[in-house]
Amino acid sequence: MRNITIILSVLLLFGLLIYWLFPKKEALPVLKNISSFEMENVHDGTYRFDKGKVRLVTFFYTNCPDVCPSTMTDLKQLQEQFKNQEIFASEAELISITLDPEFDNKEIIQKYASAFQADPDGWKWLRDTPAETKSIAAKFQMNYKKTEDGFVAHNTTMYLVDENNQIRATYDMANPSKPVDREKILKDIHQLLK
């Protein structure tokens, strides 16, 4: 009887040890809900930010001297990874929203997007009026301010939005010493797609 008790105790301890040490897959938290909105898609009429796909949202402006072009270079590589994994456009999209619609007209953004070989099927480039842009940026808690010399000071946050319009993760945009963490973004996107 004593041997059975010892064996059961060892098995119970072994089971608890496996439970504590085994890596747990934690769900991404819901950080914020984003209500649906529409913006001009510079390649194809209107884009409705609605439920259905996982989206990585980045705010930018074409005259940005450093963070934005570095980030777009990394997103170009992410676009290729999406395509290689066959999730581009069908399940996941890249969304780039200008913070300077007064300067960034349709043609300027199209030229900028083409410099990064953006495929408009799954990489959407959006703009709207200054007032509407401010309202949409506020939904993401994206703070920005345009100065008199045309510079736009802005947060350097990107947002992962799930198919239910919920922000599930945020990431830093690129800077000269640190690129976008594409592997982390891909891992999180695949977690949402499961």
Rank of each mutant, 00 (worst) to 15 (best):
P176Q: 05
T129D: 11
N41V: 01
P179C: 03
Q166A: 00
T5M: 07
T170L: 08
L99I: 08
A115N: 14
I185Q: 11
A137L: 02
F140D: 07
I189S: 11
D149K: 13
A89W: 02
P130M: 11
F59E: 04
E86F: 12
R2H: 05
V152R: 11
L192H: 13
K111L: 13
K134E: 07
K24R: 15
T73R: 10
E102N: 15
N164D: 05
L94Q: 05
N165M: 10
R2C: 03
F151W: 12
V10A: 14
F88R: 06
E132D: 11
I87C: 07
N41D: 15
A118K: 07
A131Q: 12
E148K: 13
L16E: 02
E93L: 08
T46H: 02
M158L: 09
S90T: 15
S135N: 09
V161W: 03
A137C: 03
Y61I: 11
L31H: 00
F49P: 03
Y159W: 06
A89S: 13
T157K: 05
K24T: 10
G52K: 03
D188F: 06
L31I: 10
A169V: 02
N155K: 08
K184S: 12
L13C: 15
A115T: 14
S9C: 15
K187N: 13
N105G: 04
K184A: 12
T5Q: 09
K194C: 08
V54I: 15
Q166L: 06
F14E: 08
N84C: 00
S36P: 10
Y19H: 06
K184T: 14
E183R: 13
L11Y: 02
M39Y: 07
H154S: 10
